[in-house]
Amino acid sequence: MSKILVTLNEKTYEISFDLPAPGQDRLSVQVNGETVLVQIPDPAAPVNDHTWMLVDERPYELLFDPDLRWVASKKGLHPVDVRDLEAMTPRHRSGDGRLKAPIPGLIARYLVNVGDEVTAGQPVVILEAMKMENEIRAPMNGRVEAIHVDVGETVARGTLLVEIE
C-alpha cells in the first residue's frame, strides 16, 4: 500500500493505493475517503512527464515539470507538493550550490566574481541563447567558490558553471 500526500493549489489530498504490478492497467485509489478508479492506458510505456489517464470516466492529459513542482492541465497551471508518507521523507529538491547551464548557449559574461557573496535569485551569469540574453540566477545564498567556464565559451546543457558555498 502506497500512501501519498499531494498538495495542489494549497489543498491537501491524502491518497492511497496498492502499487500497480507490472502490466496492471487499473488501480483502485482512495482519495480523502472516496474511491476512484484510475485507468493507465498503456502500462508498458515508459513513464514520462507527459501522461494521460482516466479517472473514473474522465480523461486527463497532463504535463508535469521534471521536478514535479507543477502540473499543467488544459485549463490551468497548478503548483504541487508530493510527500510519500510511507517513506516519511520529503522528496528531493534540487538546491545545492552548483549552478549548471539550464540550456545550451554562450557565456556572455559573469555578474559576480569568485569570493562575492550572493543571495538566492540574484543573477549570476548571462547566457546567450536563441539570440536572447538570459539571466541565470543563484540557487541559494552563499559565497562564490569557483567559476568553471570562461566568457565566450559555448556550453552544453548541464555544464557546471559556478559553485556557491
Partner: peptide, 17 residues
C-alpha cells in the same frame, strides 16, 4: 472534481516514476 483527479494522477504518476 478536476483538481481532486489531478491530485490522484499526480500521486499515481509519482509512484510509477
Amino acid at each position: 472534481v478536476t483538481l481532486r483527479d489531478l491530485a490522484v494522477i499526480t500521486a499515481v504518476h509519482f509512484a510509477r516514476r
